[in-house]
Amino acid sequence: MRNRSVLISGASIAGPALAYWLDRYGFDVTVIEKAPALRPGGQAIDFKGRTHFAVLEQMGILDEIKQRQTGTTDTVLFDHDGKQVGVISGDFTGGDVEILRGDLADILYQRTSARCSYLFGDSISRLTETADGIEVEFEHADPRTFDLVFGADGIHSRVRKLAFGPERDFVKHLGHYYCVAGASPWTGNASKERIVAHGHNAPGRYAVCGGPKAQQFYVFASPALDYSRDDDAAQRRIVEEAYAEVRWEVPRMLAELPEFDDFYLDSISQVRMNGRYTKGRVALIGDAAYGNTLGGFGTGLAVVGAYVLAGELALADGDYTVAFARYDETMKRYTKLAGNSNAGRFMAPKTARGIKLRNWFLGSRLFTLMMKYADKAANNIDLRDYPTLVASAATR
């Protein structure tokens, strides 16, 4: 299958994970990424349970992830007078192992860059499917034809837009936005010591920081906003205006905000594809297919999805019509339980009464049951042993 050429759009997590498996099964892989280089740092992301760990072990990267993992962060909540009112356990917001997004992207890139082609600073502008493949036009590079194209380009996927239709048809705004500012202070903590961050709620507002000049995290209620995702200054003003009247440590945080080069703002949204992540010669993976912002399953879904998609293609000897149908069916079942959460509503209740009820819930038995439900959802799939099955098929 080495002659089958595939293009993957996106070089964060899902894209390089898919590249790893497709290259292993003999596909000729090109990865395109809009950013000029890999993005370092970022939020801590996590894996939990036997399903995630089984795939990471198959890829041979679990030990390195553990070596570069961050600590587990508990968030202590305070009212505007500085009185402690609750704790959000890091066991809930994190997983069994956490790592910075940029560190995981680097691990995956190092495992694939020698055998897969990476094209940074470019993006897809047009897809035209023919009987023999997909003709791809780029913003900068010359056009090329591939056998298959994969969208691993996030919740605002360009591939999904070109192949399936406009974003508004598939992405639902869940009523909140989130912002991460500043480089993470929680790197290289392989001992998994408990780290404490401080947080505060006002109605429809949630703010967290690790201390002066440390990374900041915001969640705030808002209808869909009209702004350019390339206009950094406008996005910073949105955060400043949303928190202009919030007390506690927020005035200090806002004063520090202009000092941070690392800044990211986006809506809390959910991708709804109705279990159809493929169309013709195009397949979606990761947040492009089943994204649910801050839902706690995104990275695990991306890595498991890459394993399933590549494995099904290898078992079908590259017959995408068969493989894509199996991928759709498998991931539809797996994402069903994992895709119903709304982190914005939980972190930033819109009323003072809602905040009090959430804080009570954090210390209740119901919260413990919810954590068990989350663990069940993360492992709600029986994975096929694709490497063994593919190897067996190749010897027949």
Rank of each mutant, 00 (worst) to 15 (best):
1 M>D: 06
12 S>C: 07
16 P>D: 08
20 Y>I: 03
20 Y>V: 01
31 V>Q: 00
38 L>R: 00
39 R>A: 05
44 A>I: 12
46 D>A: 10
47 F>T: 07
48 K>C: 09
51 T>E: 08
56 L>A: 01
60 G>P: 01
62 L>C: 08
63 D>C: 09
76 V>N: 02
79 D>E: 10
79 D>K: 02
81 D>F: 13
107 I>V: 09
114 A>D: 13
114 A>I: 08
126 R>D: 12
132 D>W: 11
133 G>N: 07
136 V>A: 08
139 E>V: 14
145 T>S: 12
148 L>S: 01
149 V>W: 00
150 F>T: 06
158 R>L: 09
161 K>Q: 15
172 K>Q: 15
173 H>L: 05
174 L>S: 10
175 G>K: 05
187 T>H: 13
188 G>M: 08
197 A>S: 15
199 G>Y: 01
200 H>L: 11
202 A>K: 03
207 A>V: 10
209 C>E: 13
209 C>K: 15
214 A>P: 06
227 Y>S: 07
228 S>N: 12
230 D>C: 09
232 D>A: 11
233 A>H: 13
233 A>D: 14
242 A>V: 06
242 A>S: 11
250 V>L: 07
251 P>Q: 01
254 L>Y: 03
255 A>N: 09
257 L>Y: 03
259 E>P: 04
267 S>T: 11
279 K>M: 12
285 I>K: 00
286 G>L: 02
288 A>K: 07
305 G>W: 03
308 V>A: 00
309 L>R: 05
321 T>M: 08
322 V>A: 09
330 T>Y: 04
331 M>Q: 03
333 R>Y: 12
333 R>A: 15
338 A>S: 13
338 A>P: 00
343 A>H: 02
343 A>F: 04
350 K>H: 12
355 I>P: 06
355 I>S: 03
361 F>W: 13
369 L>P: 09
370 M>K: 12
372 K>C: 09
376 K>Y: 15
376 K>S: 11
377 A>L: 07
379 N>I: 11
384 R>F: 10
388 T>E: 15
388 T>G: 15
390 V>C: 10
392 S>A: 15
